[in-house]
Design a protein around this nucleic acid. Structure first.
Length: 162
DNA sequence: AGTTCGGACCGTT
DNA sequence: AACGGTCCGAACT
């Protein structure tokens, strides 16, 4: 699998596609160095990538993505997929705590495991792990860097004045 | 009001 | 067996 660059106002993301759909999305600077990009991707991937690009730009603008590419989440465990499914139900502008997500997937007390699952999220932005905060409205962590988390939340209309 | 400490909790490697 | 994007209460400042 070979990453395809995705240019935005916030920098160049990288997107990986499997035969099933979008499998991974990496923030600018993270992930691998050079997307060599010698050969043109097969047609379905180009179509998916257009959808991904549009969706990423919409989320960066604080808007709800209208169309998503198919997401390949087969890499996750059952618990992780349950968490990711719960994350996708959080609308822009809304937030949940790790503990709330734990309860939502039927494992109250698994707040830390939810944090792990968020960190393992292969498709940030489209699976909005940035909308999960620590208890009491505290920021919590973010694999992609807390600056991104702050930026995305601010774009979705949050007052971050701690 | 804010901070730190200690234990408990659960899925993953 | 050890580690986390946690949580909560207690004991501080």
């Amino acid at each position: 699998m070979e990453p395809i660059p995705l240019a935005t106002s916030g920098g160049r993301f990288l997107a990986w596609y499997s035969p099933r759909g979008l499998a991974r999305l990496a923030f600018p600077g993270a992930g691998s160095p050079t997307p060599s990009r010698a050969l043109k991707p097969p047609t379905p991937v180009r179509v998916w990538h257009r959808a991904t690009t549009q969706a990423v730009k919409q989320v960066l603008g604080g808007r709800h993505p209208t169309k998503l590419p198919p997401l390949d989440l087969t890499s996750g465990t059952a618990f992780q997929r349950a968490v990711w499914r719960a994350l996708r139900r959080i609308k822009p502008g809304a937030t949940r705590s790790y503990g709330e997500i734990a309860r939502a997937v039927g494992s109250p007390g698994a707040a830390r495991a939810v944090g792990q699952a968020c960190g393992a999220n292969p498709i940030p932005l489209l699976i909005p792990c940035h909308r999960v905060l620590a208890a009491g409205g505290r920021l919590g962590g973010f694999s992609g860097g807390l600056d991104w988390k702050r930026k995305l939340l601010a774009r979705e209309g949050h007052d971050l004045t701690p």
